[in-house]
Design a protein around this nucleic acid. Structure first.
Lengths: 211, 211
DNA sequence: GTTGACAAAATGGTATACGATTTGCAAGAA
DNA sequence: TTCTTGCAAATCGTATACCATTTTGTCAAC
């Protein structure tokens, strides 16, 4: 039972923005959304305001809400935050990993390597990273990481289809996982850090070329 | 010009929760708030929903909003996130610090040491940390750090008045600042990390004794 | 005195209604 | 043609109104 009629609206629009179904800058018409969900504007506005706090939409007085556009600089800054959160999460997670964690991740990486559709890479990449950090036992940290992943999703999806491909990230994923299995937290974290910094450089280059 | 009537309500209640003026678990009556601000319930609900996304209030269907209560575990987890964000911010900030940054921070630390009222320590501590990270040039990261600081504020305020006092934190603040002046990012970050971990241990001990 | 049932009051959630602002468009002037 | 100007439609923001649910208070039965 949802706490209110705004909940499903919030979830739906959120997903639509994160998946890229609604483009940045697109206006979010309250009446249209209200009709679509069969409710009045009140819960729609509530949902949009919540998305505003999430930094996914922007409000302008008497103009309503539009999907927020992240500038190149802001995307790079989000990646800096990713380094902060994910390195810490991995550091906390490694000591808690057990055998099934390793085998599950190995399994995922094998499947990953066999996929040829770049559209799937983004999701699998996100899933692998999520599994890496899950044992950290800090739900609030996990939520922040997932939120960030969502915001960056659209850019990374774009990137992965144009950039160098799977070779580098796959090798780094293997290195990270191996370090985790050895219980070598230091190496795992350092490798993860380089992994994200490499992504950061690719994004920077991609954007310089006018993404 | 505020984007809507919900804005000042959001800001006010947010401040009241963060400052501890409204205790955790306290109900937030929509009609009462609406009357106090001279508006209807609609903008009040919007404001409360935004606070829910901020994780500051909790909604229960047909019971309305109450101020969220953080468990002991969650407070310790927030401190883990603090380590992640602030160490990264400091790492990014050190290379950008200039002479006036150092002198401003030294100035603050001197004032800090002269204050005898524990109630002021929390604010000055927050300010010093904020100044440390500001040069990182990442507004989104700064916002996350400040939000976290706000959430932890009430606990740290409680703590500082009961715990060991100023001696340890002050010494560590000096150490961090000196490392920054030398441009020794490694040492600065490592010291900051120990600094926050020490706080974490004190909070853990405080909570064990039934804070 | 305690418990249970029921009515009354309070509170929450949302649809409707309406004034305010912006936007789109057409008609006329340069 | 291109640039104003003004009006109509669309859209937004919020007060009012209303029903649903929860809480509170009362009173009788045990």
């Amino acid at each position: 039972m949802p706490s209110s009629a705004a909940d499903p609206i919030y979830d739906d629009i959120r997903a639509a923005i994160l998946s890229g179904d609604i483009a940045p800058g697109a206006p979010l018409r309250q009446d249209e959304i209200a009709k679509r969900f069969g409710v009045s504007k009140i819960p729609v506005r509530e949902a949009l305001r919540r998305l505003e706090v999430d930094n996914l939409v922007v409000f302008e007085r008497n103009k309503g809400a539009t999907v927020r556009h992240y500038s190149e600089t802001e995307v790079l800054q989000l990646l800096d935050i990713r380094i902060a959160l994910e390195c810490r999460a991995l550091e906390l997670a490694v000591p808690h990993m057990i055998a099934t964690d390793f085998s599950d991740m190995r399994q995922l990486l094998r499947e990953y390597a066999n996929r040829t559709d770049p559209a799937e890479w983004g999701a699998m990449n996100a899933k692998f990273h999520h599994m890496l950090y899950e044992p950290c036992g800090n739900p609030q940290l996990m939520k922040m990481i997932d939120d960030l992943q969502g915001k960056l999703g659209q850019f990374l999806r774009l990137l992965v289809s144009t950039a160098s491909g799977l070779e580098r990230p796959m090798r780094e994923h293997d290195e990270i996982l191996e370090a985790c299995e050895r219980g070598d937290t230091q190496t795992a974290v350092r490798t993860l850090r380089h992994h994200i910094e490499a992504t950061q450089k690719e994004v920077a280059a991609f954007l310089r070329r006018g993404g």
